[in-house]
């Protein structure tokens, strides 16, 4: 319990960009385990609190389905509808309905909902842990290439503290709150984590922090190009 409290205090210090937090995490006996516990705890707590926010949002929001139906009905009452030949109306209505539903389905995915909030209790920590594992490994490799001296478990421990800004997500207990911009705070925390773990100069620490993101962007672009080639090949090959 004492360990958990000190990890939480470290996270608060990390949030306030205090080097001591990163240094004590680096020098702790089990930085990887402490980092994992911190990330899972933050992910679960923020997601649980967000359920209350989602409930309040539902309580103060209109029914999206009813709005969808009102707009659809209204479109059918517009003058241009009467100009469609009666024989083609059913077909046109079906095409419009399909296109119209796609837009609303996308809106529903992004609209806050209690179901999404409950699912996030599992999804949020899992996503955070996967992101942390991938980023930590890439940052460790980048830092080592740039002359860093820290170990992998130390890198994981200190970069776990970059989850600290996400703790502020608890304000999502209030509906309609936008917590945009926590990513840049987390990036600064990652910079301090890498700098303190690997004892790098500011420029080297900067590159070790951003190289994982550059690699991830290149990977996504590569995947997109590969997907495009496969699609083009499949179309040309008549698959």
């Amino acid at each position: 319990m004492e360990n958990d409290t000190s990890t939480f205090r470290q996270a608060l210090d990390a949030l306030l960009l205090r080097d001591s937090a990163y240094q004590s995490m680096r020098d702790s006996p089990s930085p990887l385990t402490r980092g994992l516990i911190l990330i899972v705890s933050v992910g679960v707590v923020v997601a649980l609190v967000s359920i209350v926010g989602a409930l309040l949002t539902w309580f103060t929001s209109p029914d999206l389905g009813a709005i969808q139906e009102a707009v659809r009905q209204g479109m059918r009452d517009m003058p241009w509808w009467d100009q469609i030949p009666s024989g083609e109306r059913q077909e046109v209505d079906e095409i419009i309905r399909q296109q119209f539903n796609i837009g609303w389905q996308i809106a529903r995915v992004f609209a806050p909902s209690v179901t999404n909030a409950v699912v996030n209790v599992i999804l949020n920590p899992v996503t955070l842990v996967i992101g942390w594992l991938v980023y930590g490994l890439l940052a460790f490799l980048a830092a080592r290439v740039l002359g860093g001296r820290g170990r992998l478990d130390q890198t994981y421990g200190t970069t776990a503290l970059a989850v600290a800004p996400r703790m502020l997500g608890v304000v999502q207990v209030v509906p309609y709150v936008q917590t945009a911009g926590l990513g840049i705070w987390a990036l600064i925390c990652n910079y301090l984590a890498i700098k303190n773990t690997h004892d790098l100069s500011p420029w080297r620490a900067f590159w070790a922090t951003v190289i994982p993101f550059i690699l991830l962007v290149l990977f996504v672009i590569g995947l997109g190009i590969l997907g495009g080639f496969i699609a083009a090949f499949a179309i040309q090959g008549g698959l």
Partner: peptide
Amino acid sequence: FQALGQWVSYPFGWVST
């Protein structure tokens, strides 16, 4: 609730910028 949400969002916008 909308006004409260707008108010609480303010520091996040400013801090991120």
